[in-house]
């Protein structure tokens, strides 16, 4: 890998970085780049927040009446 990573390299490896599957040397290079790049800081924050925002926005609880009707539905087909 390029010894002086640019933004694009960090973006490509961001998932592996966050999951902890990136080799230590690559990890250190990315951290060094991000520390001096306000654009990457903003990018990483928005990348991390994307799943959280969508998780909250798509949360649906099982309606009570559906839980009861599921049991009836399954019982009727056994």
């Amino acid at each position: 890998m390029n010894p002086r990573p640019v933004c694009r390299d960090g973006v490509e490896q961001l998932m592996d970085y966050l999951e902890g599957t990136l080799p230590d040397a690559d990890r250190a290079l990315i951290e060094e780049h991000v520390a001096s790049c306000p654009r990457c800081v903003a990018f990483v924050e928005s990348y991390r927040r994307t799943p959280e925002i969508l998780r909250r926005a798509t949360l649906a609880e099982l309606p009570d009446d559906l839980a009861a009707s599921l049991h009836r539905f399954l019982a009727s087909r056994r």
């Binding site: 933004c7 654009r39 800081v41 903003a42 928005s46």
Partner: peptide
């Protein structure tokens, strides 16, 4: 290979 745009735009999400 550098981000296009300003940090405020990049972080809008």
């Amino acid at each position: 290979g550098r981000h296009c745009g300003e940090p405020a735009d990049i972080g809008a999400a």
